[in-house]
Design a protein around this nucleic acid. Sequence first.
DNA 1: TCAATATATACGGACATCCATATATCCATG
DNA 2: CATGGATATATGGATGTCCGTATATATTGA
Lengths: 110, 110
Amino acid sequence: MKPEILFRALSDATRLRCLLLMLSEESLCVCEFVHALDLSQPRVSRHLGHLRDLGIVQDERRGQWVHYRLHPDLPGWAHEVLQAVFQARDVADLRQRLAAMPNRPSVSCD
Amino acid sequence: MKPEILFRALSDATRLRCLLLMLSEESLCVCEFVHALDLSQPRVSRHLGHLRDLGIVQDERRGQWVHYRLHPDLPGWAHEVLQAVFQARDVADLRQRLAAMPNRPSVSCD
DNA sequence: TCAATATATACGGACATCCATATATCCATG
DNA sequence: CATGGATATATGGATGTCCGTATATATTGA
């Protein structure tokens, strides 16, 4: 994973918010991202797929749902980068909208 | 400084190498970047100007030369991001080419 | 003031990125 | 196997990014 590649991935607000949410919530399915970020489903799916293709996140199908999480093999420096921005950027609003989502698939699955 | 903005700046190899060099060498003039990175002068100048416009670096004219350094007001999380990537990316080659530059302006100025 | 050096900017083309919309695929369940 | 919900992909247009080349500006010193 070259640094430029990670940074380009983080340079888009949609992808950055997805990653911060994964940092905060471990694993989420697409419809939860859609709800928390308040964006269209194709837009979220495209960005998550992009992050998967780059090896930054990992996807896992659970029946109807596809869950995304940070890739377990992410190098240490990449984790440090994410942790650093996690301090700078408030994610309370994302977590709040996520918590307010009715019938969250992750809740029953976990 | 929004995180997306910093990350977009870091997503270009030319700018990233400039910043890593500044992290390593404190302050350098444009011709030293040109020599160390082995790139054209307009290309280096354009990218340094870009970093200046974003508030990531600071420039200072010293006679004929313009020196660039990391901006002293750079927020802590941005420093942490730079430090994290500093570990991941080898800068020995950059420092080596810089040291091999004949008649370095910075050396006599400092 | 003129020449030389250092740096910045302008221009145009090639290419990448992002989006909304529409549609396709996958899976559970009746 | 038909339906509906969840997810993925395709398409086309608007915009952004990056580059090389050429040229402009600034500074120094003769």
